[in-house]
Amino acid sequence: MDAPTELGDFLRSRRARLQPEDAGLPAYGGRRRVPGLRREELAQLAGMSLTYYTRLEQGQSTNASEAVLDALARALQLSEDEHAHLRNLAHPARRPRRTAPRAEYARPGMQQLISAVEGVPALVVDRRSDVLAWNPLAHALLAGHLALDSPDRPSERPNLPQMLFLDPHTRELFTDWDEEARRTVASLRLVAGRFPDDRRLASLIGELSMKSSEFAALWSRHPVHNCLSGVKQFHHPIVGSMELSFEVMHVPDESGHRALMYSAEPGSPSEAALGLLAAEISNRRLSENTSSYDSERHTGLSL
C-alpha cells in the first residue's frame, strides 16, 4: 500500500464529511463545489498554512510532526481509532520485506486456551483475519460447511473477510449483513494502516475490491474502527436465530494475532440455541466414533 496516497485519501474523506457549521465556521450560503470543508478551511482550523496542508494531502510531505497530526485530528473531529490510523499513515513503520512470507501459526498456548473452553465458540486469527485455529463450536457456528481441520493447512485457511463478501453461506449467516460488512472493512482499514508493507494483506484487499463491489464501495469511504467487542445477530442453518456477544483479545506482540470468543446471555434463547449446537457436535462425534468402531470390528472379524 502507498502510504502517502492512503494518507491523502483519508484526509480528503474526513474533510468531506464535515460541514463548515460542524466546525464552527460561517457557511456563507450558496453552492459549494466540493462536499465538506475546503482545504483552506481545514488549514485554518488546524493552525497551519494552506500550502503545507496541501502538500500533506497530496503526499508531498512525509515528516508531519505529532503536533501537526494532533491539530488535524482535532480539526477533523477524529475518533480515537481514526487518530491512531492517521498517525500510522503519516509515520508508517517500515518492516523488512520477505521474498517468501512464512506461514503463520497460532501460539500453542492460544490453541490450548480455545480448545479448553467449553460451550464458547473461540478462534484465533492473524492480522489478515485468516483463521489459524478454532474449536469445534466456533467451526460449527461460523463455517460448518468447511473442513474442521482447514486452519491446519495454510493454503486452505478460511479468511473471515473473504467468507463474508464472497461466500453465500456466510452471507446468509448474519442477520444484519450490512452492519457486519461495515465492521469488517473498518477493522481491516485499521490493520492496513498498521502494516503497510504486508503484501498478503494488500493482495487480500485487492482481491476483495475486484470481486465484490460492496467491499470496494465500503473501502472507498475509509471507515476506521477497532472492533473489540459488540453483539452479532446470527441465523444459523441448524439452530436458528442467535444473538451473541463477542470479545476480541489481542496477543501482546507485533504479530497482530487475536482471539475471538462468542457468548450468549445466561438463560436466554440464544444460550439454549448455542447449547443445541454444542449437542449436535457431540452427537455427530459419537456417531462418527461408533461408525469407525463398527467398521474396525467388522474388518477384524472378517480377518
Rank of each mutant, 00 (worst) to 15 (best):
A106G: 01
H298D: 13
A27W: 02
G300R: 14
L76F: 15
D81P: 00
D197W: 12
S282F: 09
R94C: 04
R97G: 07
L132D: 02
R17T: 13
H257I: 05
S115C: 12
M163S: 05
M261Q: 13
E296D: 14
L201N: 02
S115I: 14
E6T: 06
H91S: 04
A217N: 05
H235L: 14
D167T: 13
A143Y: 02
H91E: 13
S155R: 01
A67M: 10
V191E: 04
Y293R: 07
P108G: 01
N135T: 02
R32M: 02
P35C: 05
P269Y: 10
D22E: 15
G30T: 14
P237N: 09
A116W: 05
S292W: 13
P4W: 13
H145A: 00
F10T: 04
L69K: 12
M48R: 03
T5A: 12
R12N: 08
A16G: 06
H236F: 06
T299W: 12
R95I: 13
Q111D: 05
A273S: 13
G275L: 15
V224D: 05
E280H: 14
E21P: 02
V125A: 11
W177N: 15
M261A: 11
M1D: 08
D126G: 09
G59D: 11
R12S: 08
G193Y: 00
R74E: 14
A23E: 03
R183A: 13
K211G: 13
G267R: 11
T170Q: 05
A259D: 07
N226F: 09
S150P: 15
A43S: 09
S49H: 11
R74V: 13
P237S: 06
Q112R: 02
S287K: 08
Y52M: 02
L18S: 06
R12H: 09
A259G: 10
P158E: 04
Q60K: 12
A46V: 01
T299A: 15
E41M: 12
E271M: 07
E156P: 08
D22T: 12
R189K: 11
L42M: 11
W134P: 09
Q112Y: 00
S209K: 01
E280M: 05
V34L: 08
L204C: 07
P237Y: 10
A116D: 12
A23C: 08
A75I: 08
C227E: 07
D198A: 03
A23I: 04
L7R: 03
A23F: 01
S295I: 06
S302W: 10
S79A: 14
P121C: 10
V131P: 00
T299E: 10
N289R: 12
P151G: 01
L218D: 00
R102W: 05
P158Q: 04
L260M: 10
L72E: 07
S49K: 06
D130F: 01
R97N: 07
T170R: 10
M48L: 14
H250M: 15
G300Y: 15
R97Y: 03
V191T: 05
D178Y: 03
H91P: 08
F195W: 07
R94W: 04
M48T: 07
V117D: 02
G47Q: 06
A217E: 11
T54Q: 15
D294W: 05
L45C: 11
D178M: 03
L208F: 12
S241F: 09
R199T: 12
E288I: 00
E180V: 15
T290Y: 13
A216G: 00
M163R: 03
H139M: 00
E243N: 08
M110Q: 06
N283G: 02
G36Y: 10
T184Q: 12
